[in-house]
Simulated assay, not measured.
Amino acid sequence: MASPPPPSAAAPAAAANPSRNPRRKPKPKPKAAAPSALNPNWAQLQSKLPRPAATLLGKRKHRPDPSPPPAPTEPATPAAAVGAAEVEVKLEPTSDDTSLTKAVAVDCEMVGVGTGGSKSALGRVTLVNSWGNVVYDEYVRPVERIVDYRTHISGIRPKHMNKAKDFWVVQKDVAELIKGRILVGHALHHDLKVLLLSHPKKDIRDTSEYEIFRREGKRISLKDLTAQVLHAKIQQNEHCPIEDARAAMFIYNKHKKAWEKNMKEQFRFRKKLKKRGKKKSAEGSGNDPNVPTVLL
């Protein structure tokens, strides 16, 4: 029978130090005494302390919401961009060409004649071409004696009459210049009235009458219309007929294509209405419109 193996050297060490025995369970630590056991007044004190308000976080400690991040600031507008928006447009000629063009713009300044200067008479007339260049500009000596120069509006003074031309001379000059041309202006019926002239309706382009320039069916002043369409200021103090005529021409040029198309459609429609009217009148009389009527 085989003899058992001799005990190893570790066995005596384990026997000598039983705490290092791996098979031995550690002793449980004594539980801490409850606060009430340590201090009998703790329970009473705890009941008097304020309890924290209930939160959505349950038993977790209430933490204040962090402050929201600052809103992003918009980038500052460059000074150059601000200045560009405030720059006023100056009404200057767009070419050096001073020749007569197919369209010319007219503006007249009036003076007061008659009793109390209540009647308007021509005091100055200006014509500009499509480029805004002056083709005619003359002070006018009215037929009647001037009672009120209306300087605060017209800009006309007594000294201007020293080199003024007689009304009939100026009227003839203007009639020759506008003949067969498109006449542009603002409230042209006033200008033609003081000139004692008429012009074919199909050749009139009045910026006060064009539908798209009206506000709720009412006419807009040339000053407001120029600011609206051209972003320019006119008539700040005394009126300048060169500036006013140029403004009317530039407004017309800006809307020329649509305006001319509209005018053609209007006159084509009116022409059809006239033909229908003639045909109906001929049918009502029992005569053939194509056969001339013989008077006996």
Rank of each mutant, 00 (worst) to 15 (best):
L222Q: 04
Q44W: 01
L188R: 03
N133M: 02
L192P: 01
L230Q: 04
G114T: 06
S221R: 01
N162L: 10
E86K: 12
H231K: 13
R24D: 03
R215F: 09
A33E: 15
P69F: 15
A14H: 08
K223G: 00
H189E: 12
T77R: 13
R270A: 12
Y252E: 05
A187T: 14
Q46S: 14
S47D: 11
S47F: 00
S47A: 15
Q46D: 13
G132L: 03
I178V: 12
T126P: 09
A227E: 06
P64I: 12
K274L: 13
V143Y: 05
S36G: 10
A15H: 11
R219H: 06
L273P: 00
I220R: 00
A85D: 15
A43I: 10
S95D: 11
A247E: 02
S47P: 00
K271G: 13
K201R: 12
Q44D: 13
K172Q: 14
E144L: 10
L100Y: 07
S118T: 13
A15C: 08
C240W: 01
F250V: 14
W259V: 01
I251S: 02
P52R: 05
A54Q: 11
G117S: 08
H160T: 05
Q171A: 09
R60V: 10
G277Q: 07
L196H: 05
